[in-house]
């Protein structure tokens, strides 16, 4: 009898607990959404709240009236995500394939050379100086792509997938006279598609959410990716408003507070929506990374 009670108690308390956590995870999203639909005057009067005191589409209307810069920022982000992920993944995959072939003689030494970089690095400042002073990559699209291009971690993860391709298939293709590159293109890639999707999604998300490279290397407003565009909006209004306050001048203010939230929705909504659908691939990737080690 006690056993059943314990089980019931555990399940009830457990359900309440995890549902509570799930709601805590959701709450900030709702708050931002609500903020974006609140009329500016209501925010000034009451502050942000979960239920808009006065409902309004104004923030979106104002943002979408001059959409050029947002569209451009989205364009930059998409360009970076697509080229960075596809090209980066392709050369990563080639390296993974080569490093997992038993007939490649220098497997160990090259794995080691790559591996070392994940435990010791020059750090931020030397990389910055190299990028700006010696490679002259400031204010170029490459500055957004290259710092995140290939990682030892991705090589490690993708190798787990590529290793699953049965070596007997590769060997028989070799006997038929196919060269290593042909085997890679015709056999290894098609058989490792799930791995490509999984790691590609992680990589795409990484690029999508990156704002730091832009902060370091981009001054040209036309090259702002969407996250950095948002970052600037959040922070520039902040200083603008406080200077208003300190100067004591009452100017007709643009509705900055609701716009901030609306902009957050515009910059985040699509990605949360898209990646929500791809969740099972993320889960698969996490599992592959942790269990196979």
């Amino acid at each position: 009898m006690k056993r059943e009670w314990d089980l019931l108690l555990f399940k009830t308390a457990g359900t309440v607990f995890v549902v509570f956590i799930a709601l805590v995870c959701l709450f900030p999203f709702l708050l931002i959404l609500a903020g974006s639909f609140t009329e500016e005057s209501a925010i000034y009067k009451y502050g942000y709240s979960l239920i808009p005191a006065k409902f309004s589409f104004d923030a979106y209307a104002i943002i979408l009236k001059t959409p050029v810069s947002i569209i451009r920022a989205y364009g930059v982000t998409i360009l970076v995500v697509v080229t960075g992920t596809s090209v980066g993944l392709f050369i990563t995959a080639m390296a993974c394939y080569v490093l997992s072939q038993p007939d490649f003689k220098y497997r160990k030494i090259f794995s080691f050379i790559i591996y070392i970089t994940s435990i010791f690095s020059g750090g931020l400042i030397p990389l910055y100086i190299l990028m700006v002073r010696y490679l002259h990559l400031k204010d170029t699209i490459f500055a957004l792509i290259l710092p995140l291009f290939v990682t030892a971690w991705n090589i490690f993860l993708l190798r787990n997938f590529i290793r699953e391709v049965p070596y007997s298939i590769i060997e028989s293709a070799k006997i038929d006279g196919a060269n290593e590159f042909t085997i890679f293109m015709k056999i290894v890639i098609p058989l490792s598609i799930p791995g490509f999707i999984t790691i590609g999604l992680f990589q795409a998300l990484y690029y999508w959410n990156d704002w730091m490279q832009a902060m370091l290397y981009i001054n040209d407003k036309n090259l702002y990716p969407i996250q950095y565009y948002l970052y600037n909006m959040l922070n520039s209004f902040q200083s603008m408003n406080s200077s208003f306050l300190s100067s004591g001048i009452l100017l007709p203010r643009i509705p900055t507070e609701s716009i901030k939230m609306a902009m957050t929705v515009i910059a985040t909504g699509p990605i949360v929506f898209l990646f929500g659908f791809a969740q099972k691939y993320f889960i698969k990737g996490l599992t592959a990374g942790s269990i196979k080690g």
Binding site: N209, L234, V272
Partner: peptide
Amino acid sequence: FVSFVVVGAIVYNF
């Protein structure tokens, strides 16, 4: 799935 810029926006909102 959201960037840390959004985390910043959330903190601001709070």
